[in-house]
Amino acid sequence: MTYGSVYEITNPLTTVAKQHFVDWFSGNTLDPLWTNTNTNSGSTAMVNAIDGGIKLQTGTTNASYVQMDFGNKRQFNRVGCNIVWVFKAGVPSNATANTGWNQLGIGSANGNSGSIFFVTAGVHSGSTAHQFALRTMRSESFSTVDTTMANDDKWHTTKVNNASDGTATGGSATLWIDGILRATCSTNLQSSALMQPIAYLGYGNDGVNKTLDINYCEAWNT
């Protein structure tokens, strides 16, 4: 069976499609539709390797971080949206707290609101070190649900769904990894009505560059 168009893969023509976004992270450079911030020797570059996608990498100073978002053009709906990332998290385990982390998801602002996949090198704000987790963020208040799935520095697919009403506990966020439901969370849900894709890689002061490889992102309103 084939569809008449790409549109009809996800919508019949009788349904007016909502906002949808796909990036394959291939080609010469990052598509300028992303707002990309690299601080203190952080970098973002296409990878010249099979299935390489794009690599985000921090420097090795404490304030180094790398992030990508839509420059606060927020077209995704807190009431119902999904985001899929294919990624590889380069955050080696570390016994020391706050030694760097990856976050991939969707939210109003990078770092302090939204629903994200989260993995940290050392313990960070209640997260178990080196485990894949779901984190919800509401104005710098966090809830974290660990999946008991340890980071293996291999490629995985994460999907995050946000369905909430603006109150801290009105609705839920849900995390799948490699197609399996791993975590749900119903606290500290985002207040803002609007969301954008967010990817963030933060360095902790342990002398090790943190990396985040991504070769696919897809987001859509439901």
């Binding site: 906002q19 949808h20 300028p32 839509f70 609007l194």
Partner: peptide, 27 residues
């Protein structure tokens, strides 16, 4: 979608006033 119109694909002709920009609205 994204923070701006893909300038590698699209061009704009805006000879006078007016704008064509990404909206900051759901959908």
């Amino acid at each position: 979608t994204g923070d701006s119109l893909d300038s590698f694909v699209w061009g704009k002709i805006v000879p006078d006033s007016g704008t064509a920009v990404m909206s900051d609205l759901v959908d």
